[in-house]
Write a protein that binds this DNA or RNA. Structure first.
Lengths: 243, 243
DNA sequence: CGGTGGTAAGTAAGTACTCACTTGCAGATA
DNA sequence: TATCTGCAAGTGAGTACTTACTTACCACCG
């Protein structure tokens, strides 16, 4: 916290020395550099000087492209929320939805989210930072995207309850439970335990197991020994030797 | 982000004007004030001046009690991790553990965690901030406390598997799933959705439902209609009109 | 008196942001 | 083809202010 220096030299995002770029190019480059820094250090923790250095330009250039630091931050959250953010949940599992294949629906959604957070871990960190810093756009993202997931999944659960396929529980609680498993897994993987010391499993296995737990629970049912299909037997794996 | 002023006047934590306190008293008071500010704004987002003002003393007093800002931060995390933090999981559900009452074990743990985060929401925020800021003590807390929960719950699950009461799954995955539900619920309540717009249920209900989901799942089992005890029937509640 | 609780007024190093100025490059002109 | 020119890309050295941290000093009380 006192004397550590962030090493920026030879940053792949930095421009090759002394190149002159088109305005839009540079703008995007600064934005990308800033995404990385903000996601690592938050808004207040990142200086405009750092951003400029990492982008390989003078600080003045940052302010040519973004009037204020906050403008830059807003542009980033906008950018992220529009391009990377909203994987459309309904579309992602449309066919499973039509078949009313509960396992495929939940597994598909979980896998989508896990993969997304894996490919773009900056996004989750950025969102966390902005939520802690009470940035308006974090709440906006939550209000729009997360609400949509709740409504979509909640709606699906309600129809399955009408079908008699699912017990009577408040769907919102079920959704919270499931999203909790998935988000917590991502959060562990890229914040709490990035070395995966407590649990190291593939996204595929995580999605499958979480879905199984949600739909089937973990207790052995008294009059239900061989009637299910996939779960038992070769299911004990994952923790060790999983690459 | 530019011109907002944090209103601190008449802060209940501030000393009555111009009182002379004993050294230890003042130290503790500064520490408590700092906890609140750090948990709201993080390390870099909180100034020593702010802390001093909120405590009702001059900035120099802060530095008399804590040599550097980081010392203060460390002292806080130490304080929190030692006093408020480690609710001992094993002790909390000892009797349920002895009775091998799975529902009571999981429900007890969940309720303990939910209540704790409810009473001391600063702690979760503080931990998140320090994890994002890569503070060493966040990782230390995780390594010690969280690992203990995994080992404890994982161990319990393994004995229950040997009893034949629980299906064969990697216990660590089950633990992650369950902790995920609980932590996500807390995180929603005091970070993402403090107004509880998406879901507003009591800690008791949340603990019970999460436990039910984990142990029993949500699918209707083919040959298992009236054999279970508590779950069905009056179980649809919570979302609305829950105070 | 000495020690403890307290402060006002510093300082040096940041901080976001600006400004007067230079550089490189595409295209019109000779 | 060579040169001039207009303008966007880019900069170094600022400004006004804030930051963590210090120093020198005061007031009370046993």
């Amino acid at each position: 916290m006192a004397g550590e220096e962030v090493i920026i030299q030879k940053n792949p995002l930095a421009a090759a020395a002394s190149t002159r770029m088109a305005g839009d190019e540079r703008r995007l480059q600064i934005l990308r550099v800033a995404v990385t820094l903000f996601s690592q250090q938050g808004f207040r923790g990142t200086t405009t000087k750092e951003i400029a250095q990492a982008a390989g330009v003078s600080e003045a250039m940052v302010f040519r492209h973004f009037a204020t630091k906050k403008d830059l931050y807003d542009a980033i959250l906008d950018h992220k929320a529009c391009s990377g953010g909203p994987i459309d949940p309904e579309q992602m599992v449309a066919e499973a939805l039509a078949r009313k294949d509960d396992h495929a629906v939940f597994e598909g959604l979980a896998l989508g989210a896990l993969k997304h957070h894996d490919l773009d871990p900056e996004f989750q960190r950025l969102l966390l930072h902005s939520a802690l810093e009470q940035h308006e756009l974090a709440q906006m993202f939550f209000e729009t995207f997360v609400r949509r997931v709740y409504e979509f999944l909640g709606g699906y659960l309600r129809t399955r309850q009408r079908d008699g396929a699912i017990i009577k529980v408040d769907p919102a609680i079920v959704v919270r439970a499931f999203i909790g498993m998935v988000m917590h897994q991502s959060l562990n993987n890229n914040l709490w335990d990035p070395q995966r010391r407590l649990l190291n499993i593939s996204n595929e296995l995580a999605a499958k197991q979480f879905t199984d737990i949600l739909l089937n629970g973990i207790s052995v049912k008294p009059k239900d020994k061989e009637s299910r299909k996939a779960t038992p037997g070769a299911n004990v794996n994952g923790k060790k030797g999983n690459k």
